[in-house]
Structures are given as C-alpha cells and as structure tokens.
Write a protein that binds this DNA or RNA. Structure first.
Length: 408
RNA sequence: GCGUAGGUCGGAUAGCGGCUAUUCCAGUAGACUGUAAAUCUACGGCCCUUUGGGCAUCGGGGGUUCGAGUCCCUCCCUACGCA
C-alpha cells in the first residue's frame, strides 16, 4: 500500500504524455508539474509564501546537504522538513546519489549533466588526454566522492570531513528528514562515461535500488513514498534494460536520472517510459529547459525538478517568451518596461528591467528574489499550460507555437 | 621657496635592471539542467594576410646600459610637513 496515489486523467493522443493527479499526504499535485528545488530546505532567495504564490505545488530538498548541515536529526527534531522550513505542501528529497557525480566525476572539470555532442567530443578528448597523463586527473576525480559496491564515500564540501552513504543510510536519513516522496540511492554517471562504465554503474544502481526497497519495506512506516531511479546514460539498450528492471520493482513511482545528449533527452525518456507502469508517477530528475520540458511531457513525464530557473535568475538570466535575456546587458539600463508586459508574476507587475538592471549591478539582494520569482513563475506556468493543453487536446499546437517563438 | 612621499588600464594596486607589466574593482559579453554556485569563463592600446603574428605602452623630455616602468639628469603634476 502506497502513501501516494497517482491517477492519470487524460493522454496526449498517440503519445506517452498524460495529465494526472498525484495524491500525497500533504496535498494534491496536478501533473505534469514543475517541482521547485530547495536543496538546503530553502528555495534560495524566496520565502515559502513567495514560492507558493508562484503556483508551486511541491518542493524538493537534498539529503546530502541536509545531512551535512544542519543534520537530519535536527530536522527531525524540528518537526521534519515541512515544519522545519515552513512549507506546508508536498515535499520530496533527492537521495544524495547525484552528488556522487557532481562531487566526483564532474567536480572542477566543467562537465555538466547534459552534454551536447559538439562539446562532449571536445570533452572526451580532454578526458582521454587527462587519462593518458595519469594519476593527477584521476585523483582529482575522487577528490570529494568515491564509489564502491557498498556505497559512496563523500568528503564534506563544507569542512572536508569524511562521510559514507550506503543505500540503507540514504533511506534512513530521508526518513528523518521526512519528505512525502523520497528517492532510491543511485549513481548518476557522467555523460562522458563509456558504455562499459555505464553498464557497470547501472548494475550497481539496480542492486542499490533493491537494497533501498528492502530497507524501505523493513523500516518504513507507510507515510513516505519511495521512488526508484532509472539510469543507463545515453545508451538505448541500457535505458530500456533499466526501465524494465526498475519498473518491475515495487516502487511508488519512478525517477529518470543521469546524463543525456542534449538532442535526445526526449528520445531517451520515450525509451524508458514505454516500460514504466502507467499508474505510477514519473519524475525526470534535474531537467528544466523549456524544450526539454515539452519533450518530457510529450513522452510521459509527470514531474520535473530543476535548479535552472533559480540559479540562472541569480546570475542575471531571465526567461521570456522570446528566449532568455541577460539583464546585465547594457541595453537594459534605460529600459523602463517589465521583463514581459503580459507576464502575471509579481516582478513584472511592479518592476522594470532598468530597476532589475540596477539591482543586479549594485549587487542588491532583492535582485535574486525578484529574478527568481519571475523565472520560477515562468517555468511553473509553462508546465501548467502544458497540462491545460493536454486536457484541451491542444498540446502539440501549444508546443509548436511556444517553441517557434522561444527559439526564434 | 625648502623637505618628504608619490605619479603604472576608467579607479585602486604589484613590480625596484632581464625578456609576456601583476592583481582586485568597475566595464563588455557568454555560460549555467536531481545547487560545490548571489557562481564561473572570456575580452579589454593599435595594426595585420587573425587556430596566429607584429608594433606600442608605466607623467613629459633627455641620458646610462647588451637590456630601463625600475638607475641618473631635468621639467611638470599630486599629497603631506615646514616656512
């Protein structure tokens, strides 16, 4: 018996995409939905009231970060995450598996979780050179995270102290934090990793999934839902294999994780969702550019989370229907119009680009808040409109008109 | 007028005889996809046949030296002190 209940409402004709309702202990999520990322039990620069006012339905925090600071026991003591951070709606936690990648293979070498083939060619070459040169690069790779069969050895990015996560430990910590939906402990691989490594890592992720599930059944009290994670890198064979194996396990929902080629995120999602059970929610982990959201929804994704809207906001990039703009550009200093005149967000209703330009140049803290509000509103609303379009049988038209304008 | 300390990119600086004049800020762009991130990268004098190359440049002028932002002379300017 699951603590969450997913009910598909309507499908996109001839596609895997659907609109649905996800019932959780802390409220309903209408899907597809964008999950706002609040890694350290806070959506950076925003109060929960502000996050809620943007239409956000659910927030995702991170096990690794909260374990290190302030400590999961303290969050439990503070009444678990909802009470601790004053977010009354549904919550999720990521397992810390992603940090095996971001603090391991990806640390300091400019590798993102999404590669485009042109760049990855160059990066692969660089990685090959580094490998030839030997130990220094390899040591660098293991600077903050080292993966073994039993789990991942981490060094804290805060104070350098050593820590170890096993699948069981990740689940235990996630219980303490107390989110409604928690994720299995997986290994997120680098987009540069070759087939052989992906296959090896995938086997490990599957064994870890089994251990998470066993532990969940043994120790869980039925108030938290466990999501399994599909991996497999860019390889169709591995992705499908993973979807079959993970999809057959008794998880409450599924996450799709790992690295993609920019061009075929959508295809890869399609491979996987073909095999995942229809009556359980599917979450595409860490993806959130408009094109990817359309592709994901079309191919059967119900939930997305992504740091992009808030992170790029803090760095001065703002979404508009005509593409992203960089508010630091000189041309905005005297532009006394809103980011978008027909935008319903708080920022656009009260402030001009010239003012935002001023706040950013002056390094004023309000810049982060106003920019984050706009970008989150933009993305949350975009996914809501996709949902509406599915219900109205107009998804492909909406996708076409949005895309034509956004990617000029 | 005398003394002292100085004049190096828009601002602030490092350099104190050795070849490529440093760093920070400001400036101009770019990047960012389960947050190591209010972060990071690039550019920033002129010219060219521009994946490179050439010529400049440290207040002005002159000198010493194989070689000068650096040493010497002189002038100009700034700050402080004394008259």
């Amino acid at each position: 018996m699951s603590s969450i209940q997913f009910t598909p409402e309507k499908k996109i004709k001839g596609k895997l995409g659907r609109a649905g309702i996800l019932q959780t202990p802390h409220g309903v999520i209408q899907t597809p939905a964008f999950v706002v990322v609040g890694t350290k039990a806070t959506v950076k620069a925003l109060t929960p009231e502000q996050v809620s006012s943007l239409g956000a339905q659910v927030v995702l925090a991170n096990t690794y970060h909260l374990y290190l600071q302030p400590g999961h026991e303290r969050i439990e003591k503070g009444g678990k995450i909802q009470k601790f951070m004053n977010w009354n709606g549904p919550t999720m936690t990521d397992s810390g598996g992603f940090q095996a990648f971001s603090l391991g293979a990806a640390f300091g070498n400019g590798v993102g979780k999404v590669a485009n083939s042109k760049a990855s060619g160059l990066l692969q070459k660089a990685a090959a050179n580094a490998a030839e040169e030997g130990t220094e690069a390899e040591l660098e790779t293991e600077r903050f995270a080292k993966i073994t069969e039993d789990g991942v050895e981490f060094r804290s990015v805060i104070d350098g102290s050593q820590h170890f996560f096993s699948p069981e430990k990740s689940i235990d910590i996630q219980y303490s934090i107390g989110a409604d939906m928690i994720f299995a402990f997986d290994e997120c691989t680098s987009p540069l990793a070759p087939y052989q490594y992906q296959k090896e890592a995938l086997g490990r992720t599957h064994r870890w999934a089994e251990r998470c599930l066993d532990h969940h059944k043994k120790v869980g009290n039925g108030t938290q839902a466990l999501m399994g994670i599909v991996q497999g890198g860019r390889f169709e064979e591995l992705r499908k294999e993973s979807a079959k194996i993970i999809g057959a396990m008794d998880f409450d929902g599924f996450g799709i994780g790992g690295s993609f080629e920019k061009e075929d995120i959508n295809t890869a999602v399609g491979w996987v969702n073909e095999f995942l059970p229809e009556n359980k929610p599917r979450h595409l982990l860490g993806i959130g550019e408009p094109a990817d959201l359309f592709g994901g929804v079309e191919n059967g994704i119900d939930l997305f989370d992504c740091v992009a809207p808030t992170r790029i906001a803090r760095n001065g990039s703002l979404y508009t229907h005509d593409g992203k703009i960089n508010i630091f550009n000189a041309k905005f200093m005297d532009d006394f119009t809103p980011i978008e005149s027909d935008c319903g967000c708080y920022t656009c209703q009260h402030y001009t680009k010239a003012y935002l330009s001023h706040l950013f140049r002056a390094k004023e803290i309000l810049a982060n808040t106003l920019a984050s509000m706009h970008n989150l509103y933009f993305i949350i609303t975009l996914v809501k409109r996709m949902r509406q379009a599915i219900l109205n049988d107009s998804f492909s038209e909406y996708k076409k008109s949005f895309t034509a304008r956004y990617y000029h």
